[in-house]
């Protein structure tokens, strides 16, 4: 683990824009190998403006937490979490969740592959506080259980909507009707009752 800590200070000094692309990429790759295992590989792409984007498919769901901790030690910021059903998800019985991190301007995406049924991921809220809403949204839109989330209530969706609507056929009008949620209607109805 001491190697990983050395890497952290090195990456802080170099940064994606500062001390050369190769060194930065090597630091991130080494930190992830250190945390998530030998077979962890990051594919880096650089656009015409020099902005780096790294893609890493984690070897197992179990390596998500250590990999996320490694990114946190590199001063990474969780930028977004995307759950999705990839192409031919039902045939393959697989789903994916992509965790996008900011590393001082570079974006690193860690993707975990999960079973379509009974998918479970650990919550990253203990490492990245702002993962709270991201995971609450993911849990209500997709059939994924986030283990250890401190507040697993619905975030956006009204309770009249079915669970995991992004995996079901839900009429659009149901979505939009539900948008005027219970909190709002409670107030409207309370107002009507008060009128003489």
């Amino acid at each position: 683990m001491s190697d990983c800590i050395n890497l952290t200070s090195e990456i802080r000094e170099r940064g994606p824009g500062g001390g050369g692309r190769d060194g930065f990429e090597a630091c991130v790759a080494a930190a992830l190998v250190c945390a998530a295992g030998e077979e962890t590989e990051v594919l880096w792409c650089q656009d015409r403006k020099g902005v780096l984007t790294g893609w890493c498919r984690l070897p197992s769901g179990g390596s998500l937490l250590p990999a996320a901790r490694a990114v946190a030690e590199l001063d990474g910021r969780l930028a977004m979490v995307t759950a999705y059903l990839p192409e031919r998800a039902r045939e393959k019985g697989e789903r994916e969740i992509a965790y996008h991190f900011d590393l001082d301007g570079a974006t690193l995406t860690l993707t975990v592959i999960l079973p379509l049924q009974w998918a479970r991921v650990p919550s990253l809220t203990a490492i990245f506080r702002n993962c709270d809403w991201q995971e609450r949204e993911l849990m209500e839109l997709y059939d994924v259980q986030v283990v250890g989330h401190p507040d697993p209530r619905r975030l956006f969706l009204d309770h009249s909507l079915p669970h995991a609507p992004f995996e079901r056929l839900v009429p659009y009008s149901t979505f939009t009707n539900a948008a005027t949620g219970k909190v709002l209607w409670d107030k409207v109805l309370a107002g009507e009752r008060e009128e003489p």
Binding site: R154, F156, D158, P165, F166, Y172, F175, V183
Partner: peptide
């Protein structure tokens, strides 16, 4: 914070 009052399922659309 209680969001969701104008949830329109845009990512679905």
């Amino acid at each position: 914070v209680l969001p969701g009052q104008v949830h329109r399922g845009m990512e679905h659309l």
